[in-house]
């Protein structure tokens, strides 16, 4: 079934026999990390401003993730990847700005501070 030609992409899970085997659904409740709340929020804040113009653009960016990324990334990592894609396409940000900011955040996390 995982090779079913009718599947439209890695996100198309309905009815699938999962490669990792059948297992009970993990019903544990979970909390959200702050970065997850930010990613969740930015989608809606941008949505309220008309970015992207419709939910199809958001969906397209998620559904065009590489199958291994779709499988391995966590839920809000997929959202982050999608949002970065269409925010770049809409020229709200550039990849260079994102790369520089990521380096800055990592430096902020690890920088020793002798003050």
């Amino acid at each position: 079934m995982s090779n079913d030609p009718r599947r439209i992409g890695p996100h198309d899970l309905g009815g699938l026999l999962l490669a990792e085997g059948e297992k009970p659904i993990d019903r544990d409740e979970h909390d959200f990390a702050y970065w997850e709340r930010l990613v969740d929020g930015l989608i809606y804040v941008l949505g309220a401003k008309g970015y992207p113009a419709d939910t199809a653009a958001f969906r397209r960016a998620i559904e065009s993730l590489k199958p291994e990324d779709y499988t391995n990334l966590s839920y809000y990592e997929r959202w982050a990847a999608s949002a970065a894609t269409w925010c770049t396409e809409l020229e709200l940000v550039t990849q260079a700005e994102l790369d520089a900011k990521m380096a800055e955040i990592k430096a902020r996390q690890t920088a020793g501070d002798a003050s």
Partner: peptide
């Protein structure tokens, strides 16, 4: 990478 990407996107925006 993707967690940092999400936070970076927020900060740049």
């Amino acid at each position: 990478y993707h967690q940092l990407l999400g936070v970076a996107l927020h900060e740049v925006l």
